[in-house]
């Protein structure tokens, strides 16, 4: 009985045999039908994505080259003026630096803490682990605006629990840091709030990854007398490599689109725009300055930057993955 695999790429015509009563029938069909069916199935989703994501994005890119002003008439093509205005703006480099700083602290800090948490959750018993997993997921259920506000209270100089705690453990009042007032401390504060937000989700992913590592590897390392650190580096990490890749990309994207948390925490961008990221800058330029062209230019740059960065990260991390395994 000849039975073709359904996934042979080159076969155009697939013939299978069927037992039908006492006859043996050849049922032949063309694989191209499957391709059409497949495309049809995916079509509604594709249409939605194209219409509501790709089209607005392309429109944005297009309008970035005009003097688009919603309250006026036909936009004129003005070339790169919007981008030049954006680059000439006194805040441009500061905002870019802030964004990069946020990406670094958030991605690295977030990954490290999530991995640590994942390790710890994997170690303790199932009941306790489940309790922890459920509890630390709660921040994900809140709106970003709320998260920003909560952490504005937490980091508040006079009223905030963090400074109260520091005072309680003996830090003299003069040395209490102004978390949201000192330029150097703002991005770390925002990162802390963001890490608080996502640690519940990513730690679960890492925990799941660790649960799937076969015991045999650990047995081998135990036999060879490896220390727990070596075990971690040589057994756990390589298996987590794919997760680390994906999560790094996801974290990068999240930090780039984070705008509600910095906005609520710093009341609009922080002292002297030290708390403003590209996303927040695009938002304030649009809504407060009413400079639509410039705001769109900023958002286009942001979008391209996100895609390029994700690409680079994928390339680097995928290579490391392959190298490791």
């Amino acid at each position: 009985m000849r039975k073709d695999s359904v996934r042979v790429p080159s076969a155009r015509r697939v013939c299978l045999e069927r037992q039908d009563m006492k006859k043996t029938r050849h049922v032949c069909y063309y694989k191209s039908i499957w391709k059409w069916n497949g495309a049809l199935m995916a079509l509604p989703g594709i249409v939605l994505i194209v219409v509501f994501i790709i089209v607005p994005f392309l429109m944005n890119v297009g309008y970035a080259f005009t003097d688009y002003n919603t309250a006026s008439d036909v936009p004129r093509f003005i070339g790169l003026t919007n981008f030049r205005n954006m680059a000439k703006d006194r805040d441009f480099w500061l905002v870019c630096t802030n964004t990069l700083k946020l990406i670094l602290t958030y991605v690295i800090g977030g990954n490290v803490i999530a991995i640590l948490l994942g390790v710890m959750i994997t170690n303790v018993g199932r009941k306790f682990g489940n309790f922890v997993k459920t509890s630390i997921y709660f921040p994900q259920l809140l709106s970003m605006v709320v998260v920003g506000f909560l952490w504005r209270i937490m980091f508040s100089y006079n009223n905030g629990p963090i400074n109260h705690f520091l005072e309680w453990i003996g830090v003299p009042p003069d040395l209490l840091p102004q978390w949201l007032g000192v330029p150097a401390l703002i991005i770390p504060s925002i990162s802390t709030a963001l890490i608080w937000l996502i640690s519940g989700y990513y730690s679960i992913i890492y925990h799941a990854g660790m649960m799937n590592i076969p015991m045999s590897y650990y047995e081998v390392s135990a036999i060879e007398g490896a220390s727990k650190w070596q075990e971690f580096v040589h057994v756990t990490l390589p298996f987590l490599a794919p997760s680390i890749t994906i999560n790094t990309v996801l974290l990068t994207v999240e930090s780039l689109s984070a705008f509600a948390v910095p906005a609520s925490m710093t009341g609009g961008g922080g002292p002297g725009r030290y708390g403003t990221t590209l996303a927040l800058w695009s938002y304030t330029t649009y809504f407060n300055n009413h400079q639509y062209g410039k705001a769109i230019a900023i958002s286009v740059v942001l979008g391209l930057f996100a895609v390029v960065l994700a690409f680079i990260e994928l390339k680097i991390l995928l290579k490391k993955e392959v190298g490791n395994s």
Binding site: I46, F52, I53, M59, N60, A279, V300, G303, A306
Partner: peptide, 28 residues
């Protein structure tokens, strides 16, 4: 289904996860 079209769709959709909402919202 093994189709080049669908593979491209998949790759594009993964890439689209990376686009921040700001690049889209102003034209909605």
């Amino acid at each position: 289904v093994n189709s080049k079209f669908l593979r491209t769709v998949y790759m594009t959709s993964i890439l689209l996860i990376c686009i921040p909402i700001h690049a889209i919202i102003l034209q909605l």
